[in-house]
């Protein structure tokens, strides 16, 4: 991957910033220049929209044959997450045993190192998902 290409995608990858169509209100991630529903009417009206970062696993795979860039991480879990806003995102599920991952599992986005560019040595970051910690139960009165 060329350095320029990596920088262009930086912001949405760090901030989970998608786009909201100013015409119909639909949300998109990654951000789009044109709304696939409104077409020409949406041009110039696609504003930034930040995802909260929480969602649930709708499908996943445990990857054993990995590309060179992910060789050291295997076996790892790749999943499609349905974000609470209704948008779907592809990303890794980390910080848990692959055997614990299941459809319906609640997750939250965290920023992690995604990989390292071989020739240029650039380390790049982006979202991954970890199990959502259930909110602490209120302390019983003493």
């Amino acid at each position: 991957m060329a350095v320029a290409r990596f920088w262009r995608e930086n912001e949405p990858r760090y901030n989970l910033t998608g786009a909201k169509c100013g015409n119909c209100g639909r949300l998109y991630f990654p951000p789009r220049t044109v709304c696939p529903v409104c077409h020409r009417k949406s041009i110039g009206k696609m504003g930034p929209f930040k995802l909260q970062g929480t969602g649930e696993v709708i499908t996943f795979s445990v990857v054993h044959d990995a590309p060179s860039q992910f060789e050291l991480q295997k076996p790892y879990v790749i999943a499609i997450i349905q974000m609470d806003e209704g948008i779907r995102v592809t990303g890794q599920v980390i910080d848990c045993d692959p055997a614990e991952v299941n459809i319906g599992m609640k997750v939250q986005a965290v920023i992690r190192r995604l990989g390292e560019e071989g020739a240029s040595g650039i380390i790049y970051y982006g979202y991954k998902f970890m199990p959502l910690t259930p909110p602490a139960a209120p302390r019983p009165p003493e």
Binding site: S61, V63, Q92, L114, G115
Partner: peptide
């Protein structure tokens, strides 16, 4: 930019279809 970079391989994408 939105699948492979995050670790999705071609078999893994099909595996996710299969699982669902």
């Amino acid at each position: 930019q939105w699948e492979t970079t995050f670790g999705a391989t071609f078999p893994a994408l099909h595996a996710m279809i299969a699982r669902r």
